[in-house]
Design a protein around this nucleic acid. Sequence first.
DNA 1: CAGTGGTCTAGACCACTGC
DNA 2: CAGTGGTCTAGACCACTGT
Lengths: 260, 260
Amino acid sequence: MSSVLDGLAVDPASDRAVFRQIADQLRSAIQNGRLNEGERLPSEAQLIDHYGVARMTVRNALQILETEGLTRAEHGRGVYVRKRPPVRRLASDRFARRHRKEGKAAFLVESEQAGARPDVDLIRVDEIPVPPEMGERLKHSGPVVVRSRRYSLDGAPVETATSYIPAEIARGTPITDPNPGPGGIYARLEELGHTLERFTEEVTSRMPTEAEARLLKMMPGVPVFRLVRTAFDTEGRAVEVCDTVMSADAYVLNYELPAH
Amino acid sequence: MSSVLDGLAVDPASDRAVFRQIADQLRSAIQNGRLNEGERLPSEAQLIDHYGVARMTVRNALQILETEGLTRAEHGRGVYVRKRPPVRRLASDRFARRHRKEGKAAFLVESEQAGARPDVDLIRVDEIPVPPEMGERLKHSGPVVVRSRRYSLDGAPVETATSYIPAEIARGTPITDPNPGPGGIYARLEELGHTLERFTEEVTSRMPTEAEARLLKMMPGVPVFRLVRTAFDTEGRAVEVCDTVMSADAYVLNYELPAH
DNA sequence: CAGTGGTCTAGACCACTGC
DNA sequence: CAGTGGTCTAGACCACTGT
């Protein structure tokens, strides 16, 4: 019976805790390919037998790997080496006007290029007093129209987005419809005379909240990107802020910076 | 004796596991300010008494909060609500030539603006065969000069960076010195005739490896940004790739995108 | 020293999966 | 059904902190 555990043992006298040593050995088995993506790890019972330790010790070791995002536990089935999901690469020109000409919103265009089936759900439109953070970004203190929605690829949720638009701009326009029409809300803003000139994006990363983990069906050990984009028109006015939370394992963000 | 636990209890009959209920209650105490930054949580013993559960149950609850980055445990002292560290905001024009004119490297300039004491250590310069990923980015297959270093702010490590420069460009120049001189290696590259025209940056986020967590002295539950920047000269040639790993709680990345 | 968290043992019962 | 991971109990000894 050959196994990934062959020849592996822990040193109870070591400074390093036993459960960390076990985690180290399983981690390197994953990293150098003795355990491949999607393969099952030895069961808890097997690890208990092999290392001669208590169940808690084994479970602490497995928890480390799960927290690092290397494995996922499936109740009743086993612990598996996690597969890396297909990633969505965001180009720095993804909001360029030429991509809107086709009458499609950014998310749909990119998904098709990536060969994945896109989906949008949980669409909600409201009018509320502007939240303080968004008021600062918009330099606006009146009410705002809030559009929130969730995006999925091949049925897996990857991103939630919430847009804030000053109500005086959006009220009574297709922007307040669940489906704002071809080209998305940026196309509508331009039709309303707010020709878009530039966007700023602010990117942070952290562990998801419980609510985010549930909405995005996230595995433990995966962080989120928070990306807040502000759209400015040619008069320098901020006309929209979009607050996006993305499962970080599904994204690569690309940006282009000038040298001058 | 008033305490944050006053009136809190768990429902053993609930679908939600007891340790998750305890975590939920502590989490909301943190989020709505009944427990402030830097304050100590009730000790394990107090939680055991209050909820009438075993120690493992309490520890599982505390582990959730630690994984979420909300608390840190200090051996022998207690469990504390984590303070958010000062963040470093990276502007999209941080590599603009005008910022080099003063003869300072980007990191030093930004740190001074932020009012923090910068530090660079663990500097290493080597010449090695190009690693495959970097070869692709550089479109280069020969040897490369590798410069690695670690940056700290006010004594706290925040970022490691490794630069790859084709050896035919860097060999025998100040780029191979531990201290490459005023303006950093970008200034040296321009003196060598490689006027820089643009940079691309690729941003991802994930949990740190063990080695990264150690080097950056990271708290559990904090992800890292990986930022890979490629510098192109006016002839369109990639002259440097810089592979950066940053403690995500210490950074906000800002980018500017054109709309056309 | 007492109080704290870190590690570990040796069980128990449960819910889920696949045969 | 047997095997898996999920939850929980009730202890033990240790290392670190502050008084």
